[in-house]
Amino acid sequence: MTIDWGDIDLGKYNSPESWRQYAEVIADWTAGHAADEIAAGPRSNTNASDIFHVAVSFCAWLSRN
């Protein structure tokens, strides 16, 4: 996974641990950005809103499993 600060090894592909690690990285990233910066939108062609919704959906799924 690549995020603002570089590449992050999440562990074995598609493992429960890699999904937990992914959720933690996204949560840390979200917490580290001011709400107005996130609301302003992405600095590239990536749709931050879509990424956020995927992360939230994944975290909800993870909490149920």
Rank of each mutant, 00 (worst) to 15 (best):
K12N: 03
L62V: 02
A55S: 15
C59Y: 02
D28G: 06
W29K: 00
F58Q: 12
I51M: 07
G32I: 02
A39F: 11
S57Y: 08
G6R: 05
T2F: 08
A40V: 04
K12H: 10
S18T: 01
S18D: 02
A34M: 02
N65M: 04
D4F: 03
E37N: 07
N65L: 02
D28H: 01
A34E: 13
A39M: 14
D36A: 03
G11A: 08
D4A: 15
E37W: 14
E37F: 04
D7C: 01
S44C: 14
A39S: 11
R20M: 09
W61Y: 11
D7Y: 10
K12C: 00
S18W: 03
N45G: 09
G11E: 05
A34T: 02
N45H: 13
R64N: 11
P16L: 04
W61S: 06
S18Q: 01
R43W: 15
H33P: 01
T2A: 13
E37K: 07
F52E: 09
V54W: 15
E24P: 01
W29V: 04
R43M: 14
I26E: 12
N45F: 12
A31D: 14
S15R: 05
A34W: 09
I8W: 02
S15I: 11
S49K: 12
Y22D: 02
F58A: 07
R43N: 14
K12P: 05
G6P: 08
A39D: 13
C59T: 13
D50V: 02
N65C: 09
A27N: 09
A48K: 00
T30L: 03
G6C: 03
S44V: 06
N14M: 12
K12G: 04
L62T: 00
G32Y: 00
G6A: 09
N47I: 09
R43D: 10
Y22R: 13
W29L: 01
G32D: 01
R43P: 05
S15L: 00
W19A: 13
G6S: 07
P16S: 07
H33T: 05
A48S: 08
I8V: 15
V25S: 02
N47K: 08
D28F: 06
I3T: 10
T46H: 13
I26K: 13
N65S: 06
A40F: 11
T30N: 00
A34S: 08
P16H: 05
W5I: 04
D4H: 14
A39P: 13
L10G: 04
P42M: 07
T30Q: 03
I38Q: 01
S15D: 06
I8F: 01
P16T: 11
G6V: 06
